[in-house]
């Protein structure tokens, strides 16, 4: 028994134990920050010159003009929503087999490597890059946009689904396997029910994301409201542009409210 002191000194252990490395890394980060700021070269003259332009743009954008190009705005949004729905449905359906392929615990190694590769490739390309590729491949319009969003969906839903599959409770798989069930019945009974809530949640979330992305891919010519928005900016028609932006914000607010509520049902 050692005698206890009058008081104990306790400090939370440092994340990096060695002081040289700890303070060295901190110093490096500070030096980099100073260096990075020095390369930005903020030009006050350009900022000043930009202010009146910004004022004229905002005054042009107000009040928003829903009427002048009303039919274009409506058809653009309808196309965007159609693209979103088709691409999300197709993308989610394709994500299911690819997600299973990319999950280490349910497939053999070669299949896993292929599955991971598909997911990684689709995730590494930003939708705008994909859209540029597809527009040059299949021409301007909604079809290029749909292909873009399908791949984008596979990259996101496929990856998160694979992660959900890797986190399932294995006891349930053992339980079904011990009955003599084959491979696909085991997936259908023991794995799929465990990831179903996740799949529904991801699909609804992806619907949100795709709606936003559909506006962006339109700017490079892949159909939808993005094209209309781009044209409006190109013609300095800021009133129509602001009308489009307001509708876009409104639609996304509504879908976000609905999807949040729907996801709460999937427990």
């Amino acid at each position: 028994m050692s005698e206890s002191p009058d008081h104990y000194i306790w400090r939370r252990p440092h994340f990096i134990e060695t002081p040289y490395i700890r303070y060295g890394l901190l110093a490096l980060a500070l030096i980099y920050l100073v260096f990075a700021l020095s390369t930005v070269r903020i030009n006050p003259q350009r900022v000043m010159a930009g202010i009146p332009r910004a004022i004229s743009m905002f005054s042009g954008a107000f009040p928003p003009d829903f009427q002048a190009r009303g039919s274009l705005i409506i058809s653009g949004f309808i196309e965007s929503i159609q693209m979103t729905l088709i691409a999300t449905a197709a993308g989610v359906l394709l994500s299911i087999p690819i997600g299973f392929m990319a999950a280490k615990n349910v497939v053999i190694k070669p299949v896993y490597v292929v599955g991971r590769l598909i997911v990684v490739v689709m995730r590494s390309l930003h939708p705008v890059v994909l859209a540029v590729i597809f527009v040059s491949a299949v021409g301007f319009g909604a079809f290029a946009g749909i292909l873009t969003l399908v791949l984008y969906t596979i990259g996101f839903v496929g990856k998160l689904l694979a992660e959900a599959i890797e986190e399932i409770k294995y006891g349930q798989v053992e339980g079904i396997r011990s009955t003599g069930a084959g491979y696909l019945p085991v997936l259908s009974y023991a794995v799929f029910p465990q990831i179903l809530p996740r799949l529904i949640g991801l699909s609804i979330y992806q619907l949100d994301i795709n709606l936003r992305a559909s506006a962006i891919v339109g700017i490079v010519g892949a159909g939808g409201i993005g094209g209309t928005l781009n044209t409006a900016f190109g013609r300095y028609d800021y009133a129509t542009a602001s009308a489009i932006l307001l509708v876009m914000i409104g639609i996304i607010l509504v879908t976000e409210g609905i999807s949040g509520r729907l996801r709460r049902f999937t427990k």
Binding site: G171, Q172, G175, P193, Q194, L196, P197
Partner: peptide, 11 residues
């Protein structure tokens, strides 16, 4: 087989 943790599919 009957398991300690039941190993039923919860959902």
């Amino acid at each position: 087989m009957i398991f300690q943790a039941y190993n039923l599919v919860d959902r």
